[in-house]
Amino acid sequence: MKNLWRVLPFSLILLLLAGCGKQNLTALDPRGPVAEMQYSLIILSLLIMIFVIVVVAAIYIYVLIRFREKPGDNHIPKQVEGNKNLEIIWTAIPIVLLLILAVPNVMDTFTLAETEPDEDSLVIEVTGHQFWWEFEYPDLGITAGQDVYIPTDTRIIFDLEASDVIHSFWVPALAGKQDNVPGITNSLWLEAPEEGVYQGKCTELCGESHWLMDFKVIAVDPDTFEAWAQGMAEPEAELSEPTGDVAAEGREVYEENCLSCHAVGGEGGNPQGGPDLTNFAEREVIAGFIEWDAEDGDALENWIREPQDYKPGNNMPAFGHEAIDEDEMDSLLEYLDTLRVLDSE
């Protein structure tokens, strides 16, 4: 019992400290109109529910105190059958409360389903793979992996698909989720008024590395987006023919080992392959979750050598020393560091 009293205040304080969770991840700190709409619906439902809890708790506490058995009390309580008026009251009031919630919910449900693109909106096709995300911009002719760049203050429509199993596309700070279902295209829309990097996650169990199937929504101002899209669509020649010697060697290693699965600058890749790496060096994380530093290649090398250790069940083969020796690896890392489209100046 002593433990109990030690843990209780501790946990309450932690609860307060934890607040709303991490910014740009938590749904409790909405960063766009869709998440805000959902947040206010959550708050509305919460208020109604707290009202219900308070009413129940009041009766409950009163009953338990007032009608508990006192020592020596042996009376037989009056056997009451019921009370029709009371039954009507506690049928009618919940109906009213539910209507207060149901009406805005139905309206919002239809608003959220308005995913027809108009001339100002940007359509992005999202394909979920075990265990990474592919983002295609059909109007711009771009394919990107893992990081999806969007312009701020623009209505973005995501068309969701899947290549293998069901995944689910969730960016809590911007919008609730929809499922990526093989054979079906679902859509959702969102807007990001502020620049920022928003965390996205897969929420449908999709295999071993389901928990590592993260992605990032990067909202940038429309000009930067323009530049990024330009860079992705027509990457500088540097990417396929690097000027530096080491990087040029690395490019050869890349062509030999990586290009058939990972496209760069519109070359290579295949439908069963991995993410497009055109802007790889601009990613904050490798494989959706491994923190790294482009200068120090250790994390990246480890990943290339033993991808299954990090993300079990993914489709990338391991590249041991017989496939890529030390020197080749160094040049490959050098080359990978050149894969930028924004800050390659």
Binding site: M37, L41, I42, S45, M49, W170, G176, K177, E204
Partner: peptide, 19 residues
């Protein structure tokens, strides 16, 4: 029960679902 009602709120369910 009350969280059940919250979950039944379909537009908000997009946030709750599978979490």
């Amino acid at each position: 029960g009350v969280t059940g009602i919250m979950l039944a709120t379909s537009a908000a369910n997009y946030q709750f679902h599978d979490t």
